[in-house]
């Protein structure tokens, strides 16, 4: 197995995901299985291939994709947005204490 238990824990840490012991074990074998399959891309020589980072062709983009005017438009949605939050008070989202001293 190429993917170790430590790999799974490291990635879960990066992704801020709390996993159960069972999930760690399952993901270890499943990720290993999937990444082994993904390894088939190495059969292809891509040394002279540009990565495709943009889907829209230049023509399609150019046909009208001018930037919007930089003007201020009213956007009074703060109350509505804050109403969705699990913990909000007076125009702020409240979170556990971040700054220690």
């Amino acid at each position: 197995m190429k993917i170790t238990r430590e790999d799974v824990l490291r990635v879960a840490e990066l992704a801020y995901l709390e996993l159960s012991e069972a999930e760690v074990a399952t993901f270890q074998s499943q990720l290993d299985h999937i990444l082994e399959y993904a390894g088939k891309l190495n059969e292809l020589d891509t040394s002279n291939v540009q990565p495709m980072a943009q889907v829209l062709t230049a023509e399609a983009g150019a046909a009208g994709a001018t930037l919007r005017e930089d003007v201020v438009i009213p956007c009074q949605v703060a109350e509505e947005v804050l109403a969705q939050a699990p913990d909000a008070k007076a125009h702020y989202f409240r979170v556990p204490k971040v700054i220690e001293r």
Binding site: L35, A38, L41, T46, V49, Q50, P51, M52, A53
Partner: peptide, 13 residues
């Protein structure tokens, strides 16, 4: 993985 994937995406396109 990611960069390789983007390159193969070019080939598929």
């Amino acid at each position: 993985y990611y960069l390789k994937g983007q390159k193969v995406r070019s080939l598929i396109a």
